[in-house]
């Protein structure tokens, strides 16, 4: 009697796992705040599962840059089907790694710059900006900031994507004058943090006048906290862009599902989620438009973005220029 019971339980378990195996699984590697309770991840998983007849499983890396380093540590032998959250400044390295396959997605976007890429699919974007209290006198350019007495916190370009964005920003706007700009800005940089969280934490604690973040940051304080006291500085030379992209792994055993997921990321359902979960701009304006509290991205004087070739070519020298100027 007992044996029979055990056998039937074992049979049930086998049956259950077989049933699970029938539903294909899509493994998505992303950064932790994307997949967390407060990010868009859970809603995207739920939404996609209703249309795909599959199971979405997230794996998390601690930030966007860690996604590529995780994949390179795994040396291509990975279960991951889709990577979500690579930064536009890292697409050259990502492309060179050979881990990723053409997306098959080429829908038009509302990005302020043309985006034609056979591999990387944008799903949100933003402008880097210094965020400050509304009553702090705002400079009109990086140059004016460098000449002021203001103190700012920035992120290290060697460990953080906003940090790298600032380096490329200075290079785009000032070219060979970037070195001189850094030399003059050295006394304005209170400190450099390893990542965005530390920098933003210091700023909120009142340590600095401004912090390198995004033009969309004030929207968080307005919408989530009802605090309109934070502003993003707009600079005359323009703001550098960050475009977050997703891509399918060449090694994926579910390429069709991966392509569907990439497409789903650009769908109205997901794009409407982006502003108040990831606090970035959607790449396609959802039907209801941007929530109140978000600035119109068109208000930026000039969007700055290097091609990935330019960015890759300048990467080492631009960082060394920055390091040398600030290490003095």
């Amino acid at each position: 009697m007992k044996t029979k019971y055990l056998i039937s339980v074992a049979g049930l378990c086998l049956g259950a796992s077989a049933a699970m195996a029938d539903v294909p699984e899509l493994t998505v590697l992303t950064y932790d705040s994307f997949a967390s309770e407060w990010g868009p991840g859970p809603a995207i998983k739920a939404g996609f599962e209703t249309v795909c007849d599959c199971t979405v499983t997230y794996q998390i890396a601690i930030d966007g840059a860690a996604i590529l380093s995780r994949l390179s540590l795994e040396g291509g032998a990975t279960k991951v089907d889709v990577a979500v959250g690579l930064d536009s400044a890292l697409t050259a390295a990502a492309r060179a790694s050979g881990f990723f396959a053409p997306s098959g997605v080429d829908e038009a976007t509302d990005l302020p710059v043309a985006w034609n890429d056979d591999i990387f699919v944008p799903f949100d974007w933003g402008y880097f900006a210094f965020v400050a209290d509304a009553d702090t006198p705002a400079p009109d350019s990086l140059r004016e900031l460098a000449d002021s007495d203001l103190k700012v916190v920035i992120e290290d370009p060697r460990s953080s994507t906003p940090g790298l964005g600032l380096i490329l920003w200075a290079k785009s706007a000032y070219g060979d004058g970037a070195g001189a700009l850094w030399a003059d800005m050295a006394d304005n940089i209170l400190t450099v943090t390893p990542g965005w969280s530390e920098a933003y934490g210091l700023f909120l604690n009142g340590e600095a006048d401004a912090v390198l973040s995004y033009t969309t940051s004030p929207a968080y304080h307005i919408i989530a906290e009802g605090d309109a006291g934070k502003v993003a500085w707009r600079f005359d030379e323009g703001q550098y862009m960050q475009i977050e992209v997703a891509a399918a792994l060449a090694s994926s055993d579910a390429p069709g599902l991966a392509r569907d997921f990439l497409r789903y990321l650009q769908s109205d359902a997901v794009q409407a989620l982006i502003p108040t979960t990831n606090w970035m701009y959607p790449v396609r304006m959802p039907e209801g438009g941007l929530p109140t509290g978000f600035d119109d991205p068109a208000a930026v004087v000039k969007p700055l973005l290097m091609t990935e070739g330019e960015a890759a070519a300048l990467h080492d020298t631009a960082i060394e220029e920055w390091r040398a100027a600030l290490a003095r």
Binding site: D156, A186, T191, V192, T193, P194, E198, A327
Partner: peptide, 11 residues
């Protein structure tokens, strides 16, 4: 993280 955050920069 301590060294970088309080060190004031790439020095």
């Amino acid at each position: 993280a301590v060294a970088l955050t309080l060190g004031g920069g790439p020095r």
